[in-house]
Design a binder for these strands. Structure first.
Length: 473
DNA sequence: TCTGGGGTCCTTATACGA
DNA sequence: TCTGTCGTATAAGGACCC
């Protein structure tokens, strides 16, 4: 699903369809998470500072991400993938590898194509969004194929054609080659995959180090045997905040670190985990970033312990000049705690109190909304006008556009007082009302293809290692 | 008005016990 | 006993990905 966040917002808000939509942080230091294709025309792309995006596309709609909403859609899509194969490896909310052979959903090019087409049709039927599919014999190639397929397409890389296809492409096409490695290689006179292969394995190892060098050479030769791995274990849990203005006050830095430690522990416990290594992250006024870490004797999920460790780590950091970001993380994870291993003294339970407290206030721990806050883009319901979403608010007023995913036309806009009792926050509506299950005729192929309507999204299929994409039931 | 947030993996340096 | 080496942890930083 590319432009996933933006597409989901457009599906949810008919007045935004066909318009430039930018989803990301709206604060002075926000960056773009996703730009709709209409916004990309203006040069807006993900990871770009919001301020720059606003200069390029001043008339676009700017929205904050609604993670929970996207997660629901993601779960629907992942469900469809699991119906194809038990081997599904999610890369993010909107992307996953599927081993079609393992699921016996495909065994040759034709069957893979069919499975891909049906999947795309199903995604559209169930979510109202479009997805792209890349089909190939390995994860790397499936990923590249899916990039080529988007928006709203399907691309197959046939076995035997890989080298010729990859050769002229930029090294940046390969997964793992980012700006730094790309520059490094270019300065050495290597800018295409062919040149990478010509350089030879030894040279690449010399240039980029062992792991990267070997991996990259293999990729350049179109060798990629990595299996599709379902469910990888979490290795670390962290939270971080970038502040709208740098914090200079040392005391305030300390209290922020404590809050972050609590938030981190809440997440840790929510996942049923504990950890041994506490990491403090500080980004200074000049964007230089440093981390300090400390490893305990055993894993903990005790907020007091994490707070204290974070505070100790902070002591070793010079914050003069101000900090723009603070973060606290825990790694070295386990699913038990050191405390579990010993008899629990009653006193230790008392030590856990602070977190309970924290959990209470937590979640929406913003300053207690003496006045209700209406977040742009979020859904609301009005007693008289029905379902809508917040277009903007300020000065005691909130502007709402009343429309639902089903609305054919852009909805009417009305403004209310922020304390209007008839107005209340609402959950997002499903993008598709009741996905009509297709009458299960034996064969519904012709269903697919049909170059349906809009946007985007990628799913990758990857055959498993071995090579032959197809073959071998 | 530059540059988010949540992760993963790799590299290098250093400490330490066998 | 001294010294070098090896393997493993730990710590810090960087690159990369979505």
């Amino acid at each position: 699903m590319d432009a996933f966040f933006a597409s989901a917002e457009q599906a949810s808000k008919p007045s935004l369809r066909g318009k430039a939509v930018v989803v990301g942080g709206l604060g002075p230091r926000g960056v773009v998470a996703t730009a709709s294709y209409e916004a990309r025309v203006f040069g807006v792309h993900s990871a770009m500072p919001m301020a720059q995006a606003r200069r390029l596309a001043p008339n676009a709609a700017y929205l904050v991400p609604r993670g929970g909403f996207y997660k629901l859609i993601s779960e629907q899509v992942m469900g469809l993938l699991h119906a194809l194969s038990p081997l599904v490896e999610p890369l993010s909310l909107d992307e996953a590898f599927v081993d079609l052979e393992a699921g016996e959903a495909a065994w040759d090019e034709a069957s893979a194509r069919l499975a891909g087409s049906r999947l795309r049709a199903d995604i559209r039927a169930v979510t109202g969004l479009t997805g792209s599919v890349g089909l190939a014999a390995s994860k790397m190639l499936a990923k590249i194929a899916s990039e080529q397929a988007k928006p709203d397409g399907l691309v197959v890389i046939e076995p035997g054609t890989e080298r010729a296809l990859l050769g002229p492409m930029s090294v940046r096409t390969l997964p793992g080659v980012g700006p730094a490695t790309g520059d490094h290689l270019r300065r050495t006179g290597i800018s295409t995959v062919d040149e990478l292969a010509e350089a030879g394995e030894d040279e690449l190892v010399r240039l980029l180090g062992k792991a990267h060098g070997h991996a990259l050479y293999a990729m350049a030769m179109a060798h990629d045997e990595r299996p599709v791995v379902a469910a990888r274990e979490t290795k670390s849990v962290s939270v971080e905040d970038t502040y709208d203005v740098d914090i200079h006050d040392r005391v305030r830095v300390g209290t922020e670190v404590q809050r972050l430690a609590d938030r981190c522990v809440r997440r840790l416990r929510g996942a049923g985990l504990s950890g041994r290594t506490i990491v403090l992250k500080v980004r200074r006024y000049d964007f230089s970033t440093l981390t300090r870490s400390e490893t305990l004797r055993g894993p903990t999920d005790d907020p007091g312990v994490v707070r204290e460790a974070a505070a100790r780590l902070l002591e070793a950091v010079d914050t003069t000049g101000g900090v723009r970001l603070l973060g606290v993380g825990v790694s070295g994870l386990a699913d038990y705690t050191q405390e579990d291993l010993f008899a629990q003294a009653a006193g230790e339970l008392a030590a856990l109190e602070p977190v309970e407290e924290a959990e209470g206030e937590a979640v929406e721990e913003q300053e207690a909304p003496a006045e209700r806050r209406w977040t742009s883009g979020h859904d609301v319901r009005h007693a008289d006008f029905g379902h809508g979403w917040v277009q903007g608010s300020g000065l005691g007023r909130v502007t709402v556009r009343f429309e639902t995913p089903e609305s054919e036309q852009p909805g009417r806009v009305r403004t209310f007082r922020t304390d209007d009792p008839a107005l209340e926050p609402a959950d997002p509506l499903p993008l598709v009302t009741l996905a009509p299950r297709r009458p299960d005729g034996p064969d519904e192929d012709s269903v697919d293809q049909a170059s349906s309507v809009p946007a985007s999204l990628p799913k990758s299929w990857s055959g498993n290692g071995g090579g032959g994409a197809t073959s071998r039931p």
